[in-house]
Design a protein around this nucleic acid. Structure first.
Lengths: 342, 342
DNA sequence: AGGTTTTATGTAATCGATTACACGAAAGTA
DNA sequence: TACTTTCGTGTAATCGATTACATAAAACCT
């Protein structure tokens, strides 16, 4: 059995009051040096551990922060979480993980649960957009809990965000494909209610226009982020009158599916067809035919989100700060799109 | 501003006491039906939210459980965590994540932090073995916090574990290589103080013996779980008088490194050389030359760990249950080792 | 009516730590 | 010496919810 040792136990043993013990342990300057030392020594000897729950109740701060992601078993989100955890660890915060599985209902539940659990802040990647569900976000803000979006963001007053420049990412990838000689570049996009997909799309479009290439509506396919979806999309594209000679995909998984399908049809990559993806998932560099992809520096994104949180957490609720951090994407050029050199 | 609504606020409004409010909200049968309804309606109208911290302090249960893993950005651990979260979500538990980064010091810190945070249970994959650090584990058990090891386990009284049959996994993979005609099978192992690596090694050995093949000490290489380490290991093996014609690697990453190095030397896979890995990381199936690997069913492992926790959490500290669950590994046969059919 | 049981609610302690306020003792000042 | 500060510690309230015990009111019984 382990009897939990409290400050009262220490007080009793030393014939003083719990208040004095508390002050001694907290290095309150009003405590006599001798007393402080005695208390600290006794506390150690009795194996005293501060009850964080009592502290949390008293102070109103739990020293927990919540992180909500669509799913944790994706390299991107796992890496962001890693960044958050690393940055917050030295500050004594614990990280609570919630998954939405892409369900808005679940997202709202998670938000409420975390607020009820008295977390000191919430960082999240928005799952989807519905008009009504702003209420869950507003509830968080009303409770004065700092809320920070990363990657998948949403426009809500008072919410800070850490994203990458998706427009630039789309632009870079498309420009690269153009530079490699591709002239009919298709694009796999995703849920248009999410800014990330919209902006990658816009970057793609702008790169075409800036380089004198026409934008062809038929070349844009809205697809899920999966290998299967990528295959299906290629199937559609190849049925067009003028099939494309390259794809810039907003998803690495769809890009992989595309490559598999193209190979099956004996279309050679990169000589006949180039492919670029987005996210820089580990497998893109491991493949024999490695896949060009836009890196989102997830670790940095996580660290930055944590830093934004730390900046906000101590400001008393006077002013609502709203900080927008935009990280630079980085194009990793690999075999799936390299015709020129080497 | 959001004034936090407490049961006292509700009590005041209705001219009753907080005790009555508490009972009404908890469906205590001694409360008059009319009162209960009134309280519940008023609580909803006032947007009352139970303060979990107060509840946690009173009850001694935080409704949080801690999960400690070496790192979160590995598909295996992320998937286990996903399994844990999914299983525990309906029971109202929140999952707190800690990473050790393979440091024993960090592991001990994490254990203490979680205990201090009054988690209701801890699930972890042991980082390493040192003789002294049992104290941190014992501390957890003394506080009557259920402790469950998954995957990387350790022998400690009172600790349940959920692992896979690593011996069988090693045996299956090796047997498969033998069936494909390989006669000189090498093995990449890992830190021998971890059971998982020892058992995979033993399975490998037994498969050799059972099939009349000699065990050759030189064919066993202790290596890290990384692409680079795999390359180096192959380099060593190929310098032997009789180089091997297959590798069973305890790590998918090392297996990948081996394949890359073999290709560089124009050794063709699988006709001249077969390779099998362990963990079934996503990239093993995505590669053009897909890699044979042993699946550890991480999701199931996470769910099972959570179930073991749930079984233990309510048993009052009378008996210490110690449950050992062993899951069956599954060999996924892919191109890197398939000579025969297709 | 008088006595007993049941029902519904109030009272107050409790979980463990923090802290505003009070107060006696010691030290400093004139 | 008498008076004011300063110092160190004790007293008690507080954070918000739960619950053993007490009690008043209502219901039941003969």
């Amino acid at each position: 059995m382990s009897e939990k040792v409290t400050i009262y136990d220490i007080a009793e043993k030393l014939n003083i009051t719990a208040a004095t013990v508390s002050r001694a342990l907290n290095n309150n300057p009003k405590i006599k040096e001798a007393t402080r030392e005695l208390v600290i020594k006794t506390a150690a000897a009795m194996n005293y551990k501060q009850n964080k729950l009592a502290l949390a109740l008293k102070s109103g701060r739990s020293n927990n922060i919540g992180v909500i992601v669509p799913r944790i078993d994706s390299n991107f989100f796992a890496s962001v979480i890693r960044g958050i955890e690393e940055e917050l660890y030295p500050h004594g915060y614990q990280v609570i993980i919630c998954q939405t599985h892409e369900s808005i209902k679940r997202e709202n539940e998670n938000l409420h649960t975390l607020v009820d659990a008295q977390v000191d802040g919430i960082m999240m990647s928005v799952t989807g957009i519905s008009d009504e569900n702003d209420s869950a976000f507003r509830n968080v803000l009303e409770k004065n809990v700092p809320l920070i979006f990363f990657d998948r963001s949403k426009h809500i007053d008072g919410v800070s965000s850490v994203t990458i420049n998706d427009f630039k990412g789309g632009y870079l990838a498309t420009k690269h494909l153009i530079d490699e000689g591709c002239r009919n570049i298709a694009h796999f996009s995703g849920d248009q209610s999410l800014d990330i997909f919209k902006n990658r799309f816009l970057g793609y479009k702008q790169a075409l226009l800036d380089n004198g290439l026409p934008f062809n509506e038929e070349y844009v396919i809205f697809t899920k982020s999966s290998v299967e979806a990528g295959k299906d999309a290629v199937d559609k594209l190849l049925q067009l009158e003028t099939p494309p000679d390259a794809i810039f995909s907003s998803s690495d998984f769809a890009a992989l599916g595309a490559i598999q399908e193209l190979k099956e049809r004996n279309i050679s990559i990169p000589s006949e067809f180039c492919v670029a993806g987005f996210s820089n998932e580990p497998f893109t560099k491991f493949m024999e035919l490695s896949i060009t992809s836009v890196d989102q520096s997830p670790l940095e994104m996580g660290r930055m989100s944590a830093r934004v949180f730390l900046e906000q957490v101590d400001k008393t609720d006077t002013i609502k700060i709203e900080k927008k951090v935009v990280l630079a994407p980085e194009l990793h050029i690999r075999k799936s799109s390299t015709r020129t050199n080497f």
